[in-house]
Design a protein around this nucleic acid. Structure first.
Lengths: 362, 362
DNA sequence: CCCGTTTACAGGTACGTTTCTGCAAGGTCA
DNA sequence: TGACCTTGCAGAAACGTACCTGTAAACGGG
């Protein structure tokens, strides 16, 4: 035992370890651990004493050591899709911010913290952080990150229905097709004869499902599709595409924009062409932003309820981390909410906001 | 040595450990570690061989063990102020989202990941995660979290000049006073005779500095202050306050709004009172949102350059974590940018829309 | 008074790395 | 040929915690 010679290195480092607490309290390491974690059989006197000494020394247990020992880190990954260098998506900016906020809140309420990680890892940041599970947003078809995580046995919950046979633990999504059909019916009811779509060139599930729902609706009602697609990650391209759409010879008398900024872009384009909203042009866009309540005129929006999605995703993930293993994937569909405002009310341009109408659910 | 009896537990768990790699490659643990980390003196043949075996086994080093051993986790905390249950601030929503995005990006580029943590910890999430340092946003006067972090010897960099004698390692901020003075001068030059302010009731540094700069400017030019304050975290209160401001008998002919949604709120209020912008009312607000480029009319905004702030904060923090200890606090002031649009141009109300801001940033 | 049981703790091992130290084998030079 | 250096690797000690396994002392019943 060369222990006697080493001069008690605990006090060297600034931080006090569990050993220092044990020595100061005159008990063993085990007793300190049990006292602080509420385990073992200790009289309350000892427990209090240990706790008090620990407080006095400013003892903070090492998260790394605890994680190594217990196998649980209390950390949840949140993947963000990246366009070029920047993480997060541009198009779903408010959506993502709201969703992340709800997810953070829900995670913290259950004692977990969120780690923001890029869907594509340049450096291997992924293996540098011990995760208990991961939330992925809109995973692509054969996402290598997801596969790797699943292979490691980590639970993965996705926001957005996984494309292909991606083996996620659970997923949460809206019924995008129903939402689009609901909007198109709403516009038709308001008197629209030719409904246009502002969509994206990207191949993500949201864009794809929404666009194909639009096309099927057109086919059903016998309308020629009128749509413009643009790279949704480019903030400038949206305004240009909105302009193109209204400049067409077969100009639509109603437009649904799939992305958050489309509302202002379409409104500005309509002004340039002298089109009055909603008299000459009905407008709806998918957005979580509050600005559309105060525009002139206020614009009808479809909310994907990111708060509920963020909360649900985290709850499912933590359940999978802690709880019973339900080996079959859990799927959860969150209803969307159409906030009807003046921009889509042709007949009676009231200024009051209609109560939110939720489309039928699947 | 009871080693011989224990039946090689490495293969039990799903994940392969460094021991399994060593055994499979026919070398020692040391050699595996050295080979994978580029340390030690090993011939390239050995290095390649080990790497290949590790790949074949799908070996991922345990982040917890590495952190425990090295003392570095590669994790940076990002504190968000909370109002009630929800993290993030409402008022600086776009600001925070942009800032967090830039911070995430900068951190990832240097091999670090961001952990979102609440400024107030209900559960002790803080001690459950091993941090190398922390970014705090707008720390309050005697922030207990910051004090505790500093006491632990962790570097802390704040977005926003620390109030009081908060011992942060470094901070980054705008020159809010100069920004406000610049805006007021700009409005006065455009012909404003009585400039109003839409401000907040909160006591944070941004609100306080901006308001007192306004008051001093009023004193200097001999104008009676005309301002309304509201709880900035309440999204509805802003519209009400904007209305109050324009309903006053001493109605201002120009208004600066300190918070992001103030632009749309003021514009809507102006419409209700039949005030034309910019003819009857000049408008400026502090915002990072792109919608103000497409409103009718486009609104002049002050950008606090959150991208640059987020990047700078992270760079300073990582420098402090890794680099030379510059024992004196590093202070960095980021210039603001006034994006002049129609709403503050009295003389020449052009109808051209300013070009949208391009994603690349200085 | 003795034995079984509970109480209150201590010892020691394992979690999976990194890294310091050691140690043969082979080469170089006087 | 012996002293000495370099190369190529292995052994083993930490890092700080949690928990399993002991084990004395106190206690109660017969």
């Amino acid at each position: 035992m060369s222990r006697a010679e080493t001069p008690r290195r605990g006090s060297r480092s600034g931080r006090a370890g569990i050993r220092d607490v044990a020595a100061a309290a005159g008990v063993s390491i085990t007793t300190v651990s049990d006292a602080l974690n509420g385990k073992g059989r200790l009289p309350d006197a000892t427990r209090r004493h240990v706790r008090e000494v620990a407080d006095r020394l400013g003892y903070r247990p090492s998260a790394a050591a605890r994680t190594l020992r217990t196998g649980k880190s209390g950390l949840i990954g949140l993947t963000v899709t990246t366009y070029g260098d920047e993480p997060f998506t541009f198009t779903e900016f408010a959506y993502f911010a709201e969703m992340a906020r709800a997810a953070t809140s829900a995670a913290l309420a259950r004692g977990y913290a969120l780690v923001i990680l890029p869907a594509t890892s340049r450096h291997d940041v992924w293996s540098n952080v011990a995760l208990d599970g991961t939330v992925v947003i809109d995973p692509s078809d054969q996402d290598p990150v997801v596969s790797e995580l699943v292979r490691q046995g980590l639970p993965v919950v996705s926001d957005g229905r996984p494309a292909g046979a991606l083996p996620v633990t659970a997923w949460v999504d809206n019924d995008h097709e129903a939402a689009v059909l609901g909007i198109l019916d709403h516009l038709a009811e308001a008197g629209a004869r030719r409904i246009g779509l502002l969509t994206g060139t990207t191949t993500d599930t949201y864009t794809h499902l929404s666009t194909s729902a639009y096309l099927r609706w057109c086919e059903r009602v016998g309308q020629d599709p009128v749509y413009e697609a643009y790279p949704a990650h480019d903030p400038c391209a949206g305004a240009v595409a909105a302009d193109r759409l209204l400049a067409r010879p077969d100009r639509p008398d109603a437009v649904y924009g799939l992305f958050d900024p489309n509302g202002t872009d379409l409104l500005a384009a309509a002004r340039r062409y002298g089109l009055r909203v909603p008299d000459d042009l009905l407008l709806v866009c998918c957005s979580e932003s509050a600005v559309y309540a105060a525009t002139e005129p206020p614009i009808t929006t479809l909310s994907l309820k990111p708060r509920r999605i963020g909360t649900a995703v985290v709850q499912l993930l933590i359940d999978a981390i802690e709880g019973v293993e339900s080996d079959q994937p859990v799927e959860q569909v969150i209803p969307t909410e159409l906030v009807v405002r003046t921009s889509s009310e042709r007949r009676s341009p009231r200024t009051t906001v209609s109560p939110p109408r939720s489309p039928e659910e699947g």
